[in-house]
Nucleic acid binder design. Structure first.
Length: 563
RNA sequence: UGGGGCGUAGCCAAGCGGUAAGGCAUCGGGUUUUGAUCCCGUGAUCGCAGGUUCGAAUCCUGCCGCCCCAGCCA
């Protein structure tokens, strides 16, 4: 049984839900939500959360909301909500009619604040940001109460109303919860719940000039939506007592917050700050550069939604900080693409090869299998003629041990065609091999009686007269250190070879009308897709999604290291 | 030296007192007209030290290590 079909691996969140179901908590409802802030593009780390939230809901017959946590108008934009929706949809999830925004609840949240003030549990503070920081104390010393801590309920109500109507300037006042300045949990030292921000919001425009803080908005939004399990990342663990406190004070439906460890991937970075810098400094072409771990980047790189979902299943969910090997992600795409990508022949670094005894002008249409993993994919024909291109790597004048490809005097099979023998390597003035002169054995045509004759290697090729031109971009990891974020300066571990652009590639003619985004396996090389941005108008551009596993490369490396 | 978490093979990760799943990677071997795929095989006594128990990765105690928290960010 493949990983794809296997039962879900148990994890602590699923266990909690199963227990809740057993005790009929929430009347057996399971309702989750994915709550992105629309201030950037989604990345593979978000995918983990999306798959978790939508996956759990689906598994237990519940629903999952898409809720934008848009409480900070200075950082959020409508453009981001659109890209986020596109990405979630692309990943394969559907939130139906349940598209919500924290800003939908601004009025309700305000009413809740009034309720809190009336209960004597909140007050307006005039302290400056700097003063609040000083009053807060430190990790080891308790804070002290603000001089405005004991304002009357009436005064607080009046002040909050005037904050809302715009009477005060940014930063001049805040509304704070009245909890405990001596709490060892800093989140409970009278946290700010409203701040004044004369900024226009992408959805509410200029209706508001006070905006709720995350802690004030999140739990109440969960409650309003009837979320049963509010799943978030570990850094919010310290916020849970506050999450619970607000809900209890308000006496409203109380979802359960559960925290899990966010995804870390080796050789990659998951920080918006660094993404921004990479783009700004031109190290990548944009947020959707195929080297970026953003969903837009992975999509353009050729990753399938399914492969990302499988990856998220593969890595599991737990509370310990971990670093997932990027090889797992690569394995996930290969597994998926192996099943669905049509095979095709492409020569990336062409070397001319002439078959001396093949009739000039003759062309044969050879039958090739489109996908050995999928019989229904059928076959196609590929033209064969006297002059071909093969991969430069497939010839070595002085072949090392275990090199099963072409060399002077050696035989090799041309895939789907004949066995050929290298008779001569023609060199240019620099001594570089520029052409191979070979002979073929007409008795060895694929499928023919004697075609069973064994040779050690099979290589791919393309007929020179029929080949079409293309640009191929070979991508590698963006960073060459396993933990780029741990380096003092990530610039120093930028992989200088993360992109190699090959502009003289030769493809078999069937690729002439390859559509944007289409994925193929270039036999013996890897999986490639038609670039959705730069391809078109007579220009073909392919991105390498991931190379095939390469046993020869390993042998070569070993030989180079010391033999 | 406050609080909250976490420590099972190189990397993920099950396990919830009965004698260590699975995946990735690695290394062997088989099949193969992709050195691909596929198929076999290969490794841990569970951070350390004590204790409870017939029996502990699972319970208790004490250490050690790592992560998070002092935004009017989320």
């Amino acid at each position: 049984m493949s990983v794809t079909e296997s039962k879900p691996v148990p994890n602590f969140i699923r266990n909690i839900i199963q227990d809740d179901l057993k005790t009929n908590k929430n009347d057996g409802r399971v309702h989750t939500r994915f709550p992105p802030e629309p201030n950037g593009f989604l990345h593979i780390g978000h995918a983990k959360s999306i798959c978790l939230n939508f996956g759990l809901a689906a598994e237990f017959g519940g629903t999952c909301n898409l809720r934008f946590d848009d409480t900070n108008p200075t950082k959020e934009e409508a453009a981001y909500v659109n890209s986020i929706k596109e990405d979630v949809r692309w990943l394969g999830f559907d939130w139906g009619e349940r598209e919500f925004y924290a800003s939908d609840y601004f009025e309700q949240l305000y009413e809740y604040a009034i309720q809190l003030i009336k209960a004597g549990k909140a007050y307006v503070d005039d302290l400056s940001a700097e003063e609040i920081r000083q009053y807060r104390g430190t990790l080891t010393e308790p804070g002290k109460e603000s001089p405005h801590h004991n304002r009357s309920i009436e005064e607080n109500l009046d002040l909050l109303d005037r904050m809302r109507t715009g009477e005060f300037s940014d930063g001049s006042k805040v509304l704070r919860a009245k909890i405990d300045m001596g709490s060892p949990n800093l989140n409970l030292r009278d946290p700010v719940i409203y701040r004044i921000l004369h900024a226009s919001h992408h959805r509410t425009g200029d209706k508001w000039c006070i905006y709720p803080m995350y802690d004030w908005a999140h739990g109440q939004s969960d409650s309003i939506e009837g979320i049963t399990h509010s799943i978030c990342t570990l850094e919010f663990e310290d916020h849970r007592p506050l999450y619970d406190w607000f809900l209890d004070q308000l006496g409203i439906f109380h979802p359960q917050q559960i925290e899990f460890a966010r995804l870390n991937l080796s050789y990659t970075v998951m920080s918006k700050r660094i993404f921004n810098q990479l783009v700004k400094d031109g190290h990548v072409s944009g947020w959707d550069d195929p080297r970026m771990p953003t969903l837009a980047g992975l999509r353009r790189r050729g990753y399938t939604p399914k492969s990302i979902r499988n990856f998220c299943d593969l890595i599991g969910v737990a509370k310990r900080d971990s670093m997932v090997d990027v090889a797992m992600l690569e394995h996930s795409v290969r597994e998926d693409l192996n099943k669905l990508a049509p095979r095709v022949m492409a020569v990336l670094r062409p070397l001319k090869l002439v078959i001396k005894n093949y009739p000039e002008g003759q062309v044969e249409k050879l039958v090739a299998i489109n996908n050995p993993e999928d019989e229904s994919a059928g076959t196609r024909t590929v033209p064969f003629s006297r002059v071909l291109y093969i991969e430069q790597d497939d010839f070595k004048e002085d072949p090392p041990k275990k090199f099963f490809r072409l060399a002077p005097g050696r035989e090799v099979r041309l895939r789907y065609a004949y066995i050929i023998k290298c008779e001569e390597a023609v060199k240019d003035a620099n001594g570089d091999v520029v052409e191979l002169r070979c002979t073929y054995d007409p008795e060895t045509k694929s499928g023919a009686v004697q075609s069973g004759r064994k040779v050690k290697g099979t290589i791919h090729w393309v007929s020179a007269a029929h080949a079409i031109d293309a640009e191929v971009r070979l991508y590698d990891r963006l960073f060459d250190k396993p933990k780029p974020a741990a380096e003092a300066d990530f610039h120093e571990c930028l992989n200088p070879n993360s992109l190699e652009q090959l502009t003289a590639c030769k493809l078999e003619p069937s690729l002439a009308d390859a559509q944007a985004g289409a994925r193929y396996q270039f036999e013996r090389l890897g999986y490639f897709c038609v670039d959705s941005k730069d391809s078109g108008q007579g220009k073909l551009v392919f991105n390498r999604t991931v190379p095939l596993r390469d046993a020869w490369a390993k042998i070569e490396k070993m030989q180079a290291q010391g033999k």
